[in-house]
Design a protein around this nucleic acid. Structure first.
Lengths: 190, 190
DNA sequence: GCTCATCTAGACCAATCGGTCCAGAGCCCT
DNA sequence: AGGGCTCTGGACCGATTGGTCTAGATGAGC
């Protein structure tokens, strides 16, 4: 019925780290949320908190890849898929109570710049860009243009996420497609 | 010779919070950096760490306003000023050792979503946008267009800052003007 | 010289931090 | 049945956390 302990730990940690940052969450809180004792944590993650953070970031990154796929599933063009993606993320933001930011950067930008954290973060963000770029190429964009637009959207989403958290509102994410000049159904200028 | 204790505290705190986040820095570390005893902190900031964080965020925000002014000082157009701004921030990023992000969001996005922190952050970011928009209007943009472009640049900078920290490189900030299609000396498309 | 307010200095506190350790529960395999 | 795993449960640790409190240094105004 319940998922195994290791997964419960990863998911609870991902949730909490995302809300309060790596340094903002104590092991006790994670353990309580996952209903697991300390011994289990150090059995599954010998290096403790940092191992757990890396694992939960990976789990969160995979979730994001899935969301990107879903956003582009019904999209005819790259811009359409990117627009849907922005709205999807905005919806998740609302559901989270208007606070949660990017799952992986919330986790990995703390930790005093630990090199493994930084590398993992760079890796995940780049994976997202390449993933979105591939979906753009599948919709007729050239390799260069696809990567360029994917990168622009990713930067826009990261930036909008910051504004959303500040304002406790998903508006910046919802307005992002228009702000970036993404063309959806009709052209924006005649 | 030395600035007074209160300022030393604010500046040391701003520096450290920016590097490690609100929860990532202990009072002991701040006190050591500012060469001040604990009593002084609680004399100048009765509410302790959170007061200090708010004050250092304000100080950092004023610094950013100054940087924006400097970037636009010699600019003929909004796009030119915005481009200079990106490069200025990229340079600061390099100087900081390739790690420091946005000074105010690094400080205020922690703290478990404390309402005062969020409000202050939203206030500062909006002030930056309005400030940049005013500089755009002074260079011939309409009110709407100025605000729109200022907001786009601000979101782009915030997003690029995240990527820069991940990659330990200021490249995303340096490429941002081109990515956003800002026109500097020559038009990009014939 | 005396007084009063401001500020410094740091000892001290309970609470929490991340991490270690080991006894034993549970389960599979022989 | 019994040996040998994986995994759980939690007591326990020293270090550090943010915060309180008070004694005294400092300087301005009388």
């Amino acid at each position: 019925m319940e998922p195994p302990t290791k997964e419960r730990l990863i998911e609870a940690a991902a949730l909490l780290f995302r809300q309060k940052g790596y340094d903002g969450v104590g092991l006790a809180e994670i353990l309580a949320a996952a209903k697991a004792p300390k011994g289990s944590l150090y059995h599954h993650f010998p290096n403790g908190k940092s191992d757990l953070a890396l694992a939960s970031a990976k789990w969160a990154s995979n979730g994001m890849l899935r969301i990107i796929d879903e956003a582009f599933a019904d999209a005819q063009t790259f811009d359409e898929g990117a627009t849907t993606l922005c709205h999807k993320i905005a919806k998740f933001f609302d559901i989270s109570g208007g606070w949660d930011g990017c799952p992986v950067s919330s986790i990995l930008l703390d930790g005093s710049g630990d090199l493994a954290f930084r590398d993992a973060l760079a890796d995940y963000l780049e994976t997202w860009v390449q993933h979105a770029a591939a979906l753009g190429m599948a919709r007729g964009l050239s390799a260069d243009e696809a990567e360029r637009r994917a990168r622009l959207v990713m930067i826009g989403i990261q930036g909008a996420w910051v504004l959303c958290r500040a304002q406790s509102s998903a508006d910046p994410l919802r307005q992002l497609p228009d702000l970036l000049g993404l063309r959806t159904t009709a052209a924006r200028t005649p």
